[in-house]
Design a protein around this nucleic acid. Structure first.
Lengths: 336, 336
DNA sequence: CCAAATCACTTAATCGTTTTCGTAATTTTA
DNA sequence: TAAAATTACGAAAACGATTAAGTGATTTGG
């Protein structure tokens, strides 16, 4: 590795001059500066991030935290897209992305916060994790700039998919298709679930449609089996719903299977809708009616907010940013 | 941040002693060692990775490179699972994972190799990228330990999904279901594609089934539209195949749609099979016949190979490791 | 024309570790 | 019991950068 010292020697100047020249300080003569830069390029110089980080306390590295227990981080379509977008924005700004989680599984177990300090992350993005874990709390309460995705903490900026509007729009869409008997299998308890459920009830009330308790069920996100079972329960009801909403697109497929097994046809006999807008939903028959969350924007805004927090801590406000989704009409909801 | 200096002061010893005590060097008295360790824990000490990396040239950080152009890295089901597995193994061994790609999009454009040197990655995993890019070549030809996934370079360890056996087993399975007229829409040219295609032809020959040229088509991986078009072409053939193989499960859905649009039924009128074993394939009707690649093992072996290369460079051999997949029988291939 | 300001650079300390080489004190060996 | 070996620790350099403070030379101002 060619270091500043090598360049200094080659140019016959001091290391300090090289450092300043490469960092465009004003107190270096133009021609010296050019010469040094030229030489640096020639010699294939690149800075050493460890040394720079050590000295400046800025790593240009962002920690990303997400659930690991069920491996539903990377392999989760929604999150993968958000992360991809986040990553692109960060990279364009010169930051790298490193995973935080798993630190507790390491040989020398560190907490999330300890891991962040160890690596000197400039900031962290927390998504799709068990927000209630004390380890997570400790992290957000620290002085490390952080943003959460789809969860609201005190004094922490959050980027949230607009689940209230998403659910409202979806329900309106279904209502307009003529449905009045709408069941909702919601996900496991979380702030996202609560938002959607509340919005579901509220919108139903506004639309003047009645929701019997038996129309509400629960199945963990992406749990096709649970969705299957709950769907069977709904199908067995004497007053069967005409449309069933699922926690997400994935779970929806579990429901679709249950329906198919009964010999019922979608959307002729019963309609279904998911949530998320995963890619495959556009490519099955019938296509899935769902709410496409704006993953691109979610990742981008999370990145920008965090960078702003890092680079302009004084002038950046802690806020909650809501990103609207969009109903994707699909063949899975028919007119009734 | 509490540093070794703080501990040294607190314990009334030198920094050197603290360092040695925490790193379990033998030339520190047992009680002193215990006392220092105790104090370190008490004071909440954690090392500073930047300082450690600077001094030791070991970052305990692994760079991961994958295609970014079409964003099909993270959002690619197969790769996401491999990465997840890789990450878990690495973390258990005390290594972090940082993304390499995007370096060329940065403000101060670095090549992949430059980026690796900048961050001091101990090793790199290269997957799902354009292996032919000169930047990638430069990286694998450097002295940085590296492993590739599903691609073979000279002098670089590779973890490969067994596409030859996968395709052979799949074809055998289909053959045993009675199919003799089998079409194959393969993916865009790559070593994976070539392996599968070669194995397809070879196995077909062994089984004594004839493959007319018109039964072979091409559609980019995960390109449902292209698969759709190619499927239509096959369906228009006067001597239509009874089974169509696709580049991957995702593309397969594109084909399924084309088939549905013609009013044909799967598997009654025609059979289809994918490749990869993506999760959703188990949850649609009919379930997808496919080859499930062992992503867990792929990621694990890639991690282990790389760590071995890093930690025991002398005794670790460069080799190609083949990981077998498994045919997942599904309803999409019927008996004929 | 001389003092003050500016310019262009260097010196040296520092970030938090690791590690080589000493060196006293203690123990072992012959 | 004296020499040799061992034990337990410390001093200091080094890793590769940044940056405050200093310095001599040149330019500017009054």
């Amino acid at each position: 590795m060619v270091s500043m010292k090598d360049i200094a020697t080659a140019c016959g100047v001091s290391i300090a001059t090289v450092s300043k020249a490469l960092n465009d300080h004003k107190d270096i003569g133009v021609e010296t500066k050019e010469h040094i830069k030229q030489k640096a390029k020639e010699m294939g110089y690149f800075p050493n991030s460890a040394a720079k980080t050590l000295k400046t306390k800025r790593s240009y590295n962002i920690g990303v935290l997400f659930a690991v227990d069920d491996h539903s981080g990377l392999t989760h379509d929604y999150f993968a897209y958000v992360l991809d977008s986040l990553k692109c924005t960060m990279e364009a700004r010169g930051y790298d992305i490193t995973f935080i989680n798993g630190s507790s599984v390491r040989p020398n177990k560190m907490s999330y916060l300890e891991h962040c300090r160890y690596r000197g992350f400039d900031g962290v993005v927390i998504a799709n994790t068990q927000f209630s874990r004390s380890e997570v709390m400790e992290l957000v309460q620290s002085d490390i700039p952080s943003v959460t995705i789809d969860h609201l903490f005190n004094n922490v900026s959050a980027i949230m998919s607009d689940n209230v509007k998403g659910m409202r729009d979806l329900l309106h869409y279904i209502y307009e298709k003529g449905h009045r008997k709408i069941a909702y299998i919601h996900g496991a308890d979380s702030s996202v679930t609560r938002s959607r459920l509340t919005s579901f009830y509220k919108t139903a009330a506004e639309l003047g449609i009645d929701v019997p308790d038996e129309y509400i069920g629960e199945a963990a996100y992406r749990d096709t089996k649970a969705a299957h079972i709950e769907t069977e329960r709904l199908l067995d009801l004497k007053d069967r719903p005409t449309c069933i909403l699922y926690p997400d697109d994935f779970a929806c497929f579990g429901g679709i299977n249950a329906i198919n097994e009964r010999g019922l046809r979608i959307p002729n006999d019963i309609s279904v809708a998911g949530y998320d807008g995963i890619r495959i939903g556009r490519h099955v028959e019938p296509t899935l009616t769902t709410v496409k969350q704006d993953t691109l924007r979610l990742g981008q805004l999370a990145a920008e907010k965090l960078l702003s927090l890092i680079e302009h801590p004084k002038t950046t406000i802690i806020e909650q940013i809501i990103v609207e989704g969009e109903v994707y009409p699909g063949g899975s909801v028919g007119a009734v």
